[in-house]
Design a protein around this nucleic acid. Structure first.
Lengths: 186, 186, 186, 186
DNA sequence: AATGAATGAGACTTCATTCAT
DNA sequence: AATGAATGAAGTCTCATTCAT
């Protein structure tokens, strides 16, 4: 019935299942069944299982890539870094299943060709928050700012009170505080 | 020939491989080969593959359980919480492969019977750092202190300069700072 | 090459082997080899080993079901019951491998989901031969009529002389005699 | 605690399980567990799994062997045959689990070295009921007498009313009637 | 009289993948 | 754009059996 969008639908369902059960634990049979297609149909659209994952990454990491590209062109100021955190939190919220998947499947995906790409991205991003004259402690602070956003988005849900929006705001504030403290050098 | 310690050796090798490649990706054949035993021998010592994992958990989460037990008996003061963080970092370092494994295999392990148990432990631990009159932001700070330790132990290695000890010290300092800020209510 | 009939061929070969060696003793490898297919091919057509058996039952018990259905609609007279025995002997001959299999594999099959279904069928069939005012002895006679057919079809081959047809006739006669004696109440 | 009778206990438990689940489906682990011994202990008393079965047969078929031996020495009269049936029903009742097991596991046991032995026994027994000048129909009758006892002991329980003793009596009566009819040649 | 540890064979099952149609 | 049929490799697990102690 709906036609031409099958490729997209495969990716959607796949990501959902990968995030829920892990990449290894999710079989193509499951994906196909959920879409009411045969396994062979998946192979019309993707060359391998890994390819489905790569496709998802290509689509969903774009916001992050754009964020990195943008940040690289800005002056390395506190203000830029604040904005980077703000945007990163938004990216996290937007591509939540992808990030959740990546956080929970590092081991499984580690050896796929995309794995490195992701770690590289993380590395680039965190590097942008660092300043040449940060002390070790300040470097930790800057990094921790990023991870506060991560942990906040994925783990705090059940451990902290407050309505979601209030919580998200608080998380961002804490992350920004850490960034600032790194810059204050104290 | 080697006698009596086979069970332990299985657990050691298994954890190593699970951490390296993920639980799903690691086959019993691999574990057996590495130990130069047959697969059937594994089944003499453990009823299922999952059982191997459970065995590992039972052994390695003891330090964490003891930490929680200890913290529960202390007065809920800043001083107790500082000490909790200090000890937690040590526990993290001691059971590093286990924690690395858990961090990277949440999806795969999520549905095993141990999953919940671990999340419960985390919940209890983080709850001990919280104070009834913390603002939402302070709650985030307290939680972030724990995750700073985690991220510091597992992700910072390649992203922050300095020799390992210096780094560990810096990480702990940052975590303690966050805890203090939560208590200062600022 | 051969096409479309694989499912049927699997069932045929499986029943043959099950009857010959028993259900437990027959491995899927054996079935596959005899068909010159891979084991995996079996799983394309049947979800489990048990499923193969269920498929066979569904197909081969139909004659018996039809016999029961037919008998239920008839008046409960001696004449109907005579006809029931006649038809049952024919059904027995037609689905001989199935019945032989069931007779020899009761233990193995007892716990499969079909087991009960079969016992129920037998129960229904034997009930149709009983009359409300039969004495206990006459009830035994009616039941024995059925079992004479069974025993006759499967055990007498080597124990009784005469050519097969003559034997089958004699078996039926004896069974009918017993039925009549039950009705005569003597 | 109880000592020296382990061999017997193994046989008892084994027969129980074999009868219940079939020979193939019953594992030595199960038997050992039920006895609270290790599998290796079974091997102290029996050389193989099949050996356990052979042991059971050797013990429990004795009554049947004695019955056959006795019958062989008697004159081939109707009276002897009546007595043979009476004694056979008693033997059936006494060694019920064994017979039930044999009836339900023919396929599985068929190839064991004992299998033939049992069929031979049955053959000898049924032969003793036959007379040289029986018509085919009378041969069937004589055979059916035996199978009436079998069916009566194992299948009629739920299909015929009356208290057990009454039922057993009726079964025997029917079997004897058949035998007599064979002799009457009608 | 029995155990603890281990093995080799083989069972059922699932998976990603292919290819003619 | 997709299916039906099949495969080869591999996985988890169970079993009967052995043997030093």
């Amino acid at each position: 019935m709906a036609r031409g969008n099958t490729r997209q639908r495969i990716q959607d369902v796949a990501l959902e299942l990968f995030a829920e059960q892990g990449y290894e634990k999710t079989s193509l049979r499951e994906i196909a069944e959920r879409l009411d297609v045969t396994k062979a149909a998946l192979y019309y659209h993707f060359k391998t299982k890994e390819d489905i994952l790569v496709g998802i990454f290509d689509d969903l990491t774009r916001p992050m890539d754009e964020l990195i590209a943008w940040a690289k062109e800005q002056p390395r100021t506190l203000e830029t870094r604040r904005e980077t955190l703000v945007r990163y939190q938004a990216a996290l919220a937007a591509a939540r299943p992808l990030f959740r998947f990546m956080q929970e499947n590092q081991a499984a995906v580690g050896k796929l060709s995309i794995g490195m790409t992701f770690k590289e991205r993380m590395h680039e991003l965190t590097a942008l928050l660092q300043d040449p004259d940060f002390s070790v402690k300040d470097q930790v602070r800057a990094l921790s700012a990023i991870f506060t956003l991560h942990a906040g988005t994925f783990f705090m849900m059940n451990n902290v009170e407050g309505d979601p929006e209030e919580r998200q705001e608080a998380i961002l504030e804490v992350a920004l505080d850490m960034l600032e403290q790194a810059h204050e050098g104290r």
